[in-house]
């Protein structure tokens, strides 16, 4: 566990210079929040933002040849991959926290009702979006690197946007989404389960990709 935390720490150090861009997130969230967006929307916005900035770590890794640094350090290769997944999830949790705080602050400021159920639903849906997209993105970046993986990693984004677009035209999709929105409890649990399973499968695929690179 200590080894994983060290790698996570190294990833945070690696992204150090990029943290200035993270200020955009609370600003955007606060604007959305002031515009009466629900905590669900805020959470999904935060997840979307983190999905975009998370890829920076692969760009820095490639630019600086950090594979050589990792090879020199006393760490296991599978830990490097696991560390990157933990780092990604921590980033998501931090972004969710920002969305949550912004939601609470604006609710108090504008005397709006703040529902705990919405908070949980927001977290679960944001986690589903985040984990499904990053589950597809991470193995691509781990296998192909940033430059080669950049175009391929857009596929999950396009797929999600496409799915949402199609759903507005196809009755079947719309009824599934409506039913999911009605059955909040089931949707939240299912989102969490799907997200966790996708992340676990993605991790094992990534470990194999990392090994095959050698």
């Amino acid at each position: 566990m200590r080894a994983i935390l060290r790698i996570v720490k190294l990833d945070f150090y690696t992204l150090k210079e990029q943290f200035s861009t993270y200020w955009i997130l609370p600003v955007v969230i606060l604007i959305f929040s002031a515009m009466s967006s629900s905590i669900v929307v805020l959470s999904i916005t935060a997840a979307w933002f983190i999905l975009i900035v998370n890829t920076n770590i692969f760009a820095i890794q490639e630019k600086n040849g950090l594979e050589r640094l990792y090879a020199s350090l006393p760490i296991r290769q599978s830990h490097i991959v696991l560390g990157r997944y933990v780092f990604t999830i921590i980033n998501f949790l931090l972004s969710y926290l920002i969305a949550l705080v912004a939601g609470i602050v604006t609710s108090i400021a504008y005397s709006r009702e703040f529902l705990m159920a919405d908070t949980i639903k927001g977290f679960c849906l944001a986690f589903l979006l985040f984990s499904v997209i990053s589950a597809m993105q991470l193995p691509i970046y781990i296998k192909a690197g940033y430059t080669k993986g950049k175009m391929l990693s857009l596929i999950p984004f396009v797929a999600v946007i496409g799915l949402l677009f199609i759903s507005s035209f196809v009755d079947g999709f719309s009824s599934i989404i409506n039913s999911a929105l009605v059955h909040t409890g089931f949707t939240s649990v299912a989102s969490l389960v799907i997200g966790v399973v996708a992340t676990i499968i993605s991790y094992y695929v990534s470990v194999q990709c990392y090994k095959k690179k050698r």
Partner: peptide, 19 residues
């Protein structure tokens, strides 16, 4: 893991984050 505690590596170019 144990072996690399006692190995130092220098490559032909820098491998630290340049920032």
């Amino acid at each position: 893991k144990q072996i690399k505690q006692s190995i130092g590596v220098v490559f032909d170019s820098n491998f630290f984050v340049d920032a």
